[in-house]
Write a protein that binds this DNA or RNA. Structure first.
Lengths: 138, 138
DNA sequence: TTGTTTGCAAATCATTTGCAGTAAC
DNA sequence: GTTACTGCAAATGATTTGCAAACAA
């Protein structure tokens, strides 16, 4: 556990959202200006292998890293890129897929997209609450 | 509609599976050796915009193109990379996500992964049938 | 000390783009 | 005869890697 690795992990945890490698790099650089982007990539890789952070791969977007390691899905806004975590019951889907394909299903990856409350102009107290758990991916 | 575009569309349709741009390029080159990869990319882009083919984006894999334009999901085998189409009922999921996030959900993208029948060594007549609808992505 | 990790720079690899020439309508 | 499309080659951008020096155990 080097200083670099500790700082990277702290930064991903502090943000709470879904950071790209470069975003992590820019943030860590503030306290450790000599760190290199390669080191950030290598450490994000190690940390996700050991299960301390989660690798989030949204279609057509860079890899992102999340301190919330509980498996979960995402909704992405097509207008502003904002991303929100959601939880969905999958068991029935997995069974259905196994039945159709004959595969033993071990994992699923689900991403929704649409228009977020803010872009729809319907920012109400209840949607504002959801917005708090949200990350903007431009 | 140029010769290039027609040949590219034919090739995607003939294969039936999920081809990468480079795979399309290699195949079309057999009948039109002077075609360039850039042209293939540009035409795959046009054809997917006009809805004649489908852009398939599996996590951590290159973009692929599919003649089956009906929206559908995929199971990918972790052992051999084989990919099979599946259809799943999403309406309930979309509603759940909209409720949780406040987003207006327009689209979802779902990918399953696990072990395919062949890799599990349980190739039976019924799984062989599913295997026929399958594409291998190495 | 011994294996791991670093910073740096160069390499990869899929995809995109600028441009001048060519083909479609 | 425009306008869109092509081939080529170079640019892009995220990610990975080789290497010698530096560090953590």
């Amino acid at each position: 556990m080097t200083r670099q690795r500790r700082l990277i992990l702290e930064e991903v945890r502090r943000c709470g959202g879904h950071l790209t490698a470069d975003e992590v790099y820019q943030r860590v650089r503030k306290s450790l200006p000599t760190i290199s982007l390669g080191t950030v990539y290598r450490n994000l890789d190690v940390l996700s292998r050991t299960g301390e952070i989660l690798r989030v791969q949204l279609a057509g977007d860079q890899m992102r890293f999340d301190a919330n390691t509980r498996p979960h899905s995402h909704v992405r806004c097509r207008e502003c890129g904002r991303v929100c975590d959601v939880e969905v019951e999958f068991q029935i889907l997995d069974e259905r897929v196994a039945q159709q394909s004959g595969y033993e299903v071990l994992e699923h990856r689900l991403e929704f997209s649409g228009i977020c409350p803010r872009c729809r102009g319907v920012e109400t107290p209840s949607t504002a609450e959801a917005d708090a758990r949200t990350t903007r991916h431009l």
